[in-house]
Structure formats: C-alpha cells, structure tokens
C-alpha cells in the first residue's frame, strides 16, 4: 500500500504494509531517529510525534490511518523557535533528558505550552503521567516548563 503524508513540512510518500506501526515507518522509511520504540503499548512516550497538532504515541498508529496527516517529529520541531525556548529552559534548570525520552519530553512540553500560557503543576504532572523514563527528575522538568512558558510570555509581550 502506498501512503503519503506531510512529514516535518515536506510531502513524504512510501510503500508500506497497511497495519505497520508508524514508529517503524518513520525509522526505517523516513530515517527519523528521534522516534524510539520500547513498550509498544503507548505508555513510555519515547515514540511520541505530533499528528495534526496532537502529541500521540506513534507505536499505536497503523499506517492506514495516517494518510494525508501532518506529522512533526523532534527533527522537524527542532527547526522552530519554540524548540529553542525549551532547550534554553533545560540549560538553565539543569534538566537533561536522555536520548531515549528526549523527543517525547520536548514534544510533551510543547503540547503543554500550546494549551496553557501559564501551566500549573497539576497540569504538567498530568501531561507527564505516562512518561516512565527515570533519567530526569520531574521537578526539573516542571521548572523547565514554567521557565519556557515565561520566555514565551516575554516574547509575546515583546520583551527580551
């Protein structure tokens, strides 16, 4: 079966088996290396991608359901200005997610910041409730989210 979708802003077309997992397609056909697979149950978040504006576990999505979708992975998101707010917040708080959960963590933070201008702790904890990687303290992640939100707020107000 041939499917096509927008991958990081570019049209992408590939030949796949209809029920093949999106995570496998992105890794093998799309050469996307930020997507990792581990649990295959949608629990670990290491395979997270953004599809049509929503963060979803790509291991739970079969090929036939992504035709015509707009898919953004960490590779695509890292070229945006929003990404740099999050990285700057990581640097200042000392949070450093490992390579395995980095993609999922950053995309989850982005989804929080899109929903809440000033996210509060319960909202952050809820969003991270499926993130099982123990590499980074959730306290540091929470500080990073709040700091990144502050940077965005300053940008909106036109301050440095």
């Amino acid at each position: 079966m041939k499917i096509s979708f927008l991958l990081n802003g570019r049209q992408f077309e590939t030949e796949v088996s209809p029920t093949e997992r999106l995570s496998d397609i992105l890794k093998s056909n799309g050469k996307i290396f930020s997507v990792r697979t581990s649990c295959l149950k949608g629990e670990c978040k290491s395979c997270s991608v953004i599809i049509d504006g929503e963060v979803v576990p790509s291991c739970m999505i079969p090929a036939f359901s992504v035709r015509g979708s707009d898919i953004t992975t960490l590779e695509g998101f890292s070229k945006t200005r929003d990404y740099h707010d999050i990285i700057q917040a990581f640097e200042e708080t000392g949070a450093s997610p490992c390579d395995f959960c980095r993609g999922g963590t950053i995309l989850t933070i982005q989804s929080i910041l899109e929903r809440f201008a000033e996210p509060e702790e319960p909202q952050i904890l809820d969003a991270f409730s499926g993130n099982i990687c123990p590499c980074t303290n959730i306290g540091l992640i929470m500080d990073s989210v709040k700091r990144a939100a502050l940077y965005r707020k300053r940008k909106r107000l036109g301050r440095k």
């Binding site: 949608g42 629990e43 978040k45 997270s48 929503e54 963060v55 979803v56 576990p57 739970m60 999505i61 989850t108 809820d126 969003a127 409730s129 499926g130 993130n131």
Partner: peptide, 12 residues
C-alpha cells in the same frame, strides 16, 4: 476518562 491510558493515548 482521565484514568484511561496516558494523555497521549487519550488523544487517540
């Protein structure tokens, strides 16, 4: 509904 899966799973 909040007890169903993780937030990313609830998107699906």
């Amino acid at each position: 509904l909040m007890s169903i899966g993780s937030p990313a799973v609830r998107n699906l």
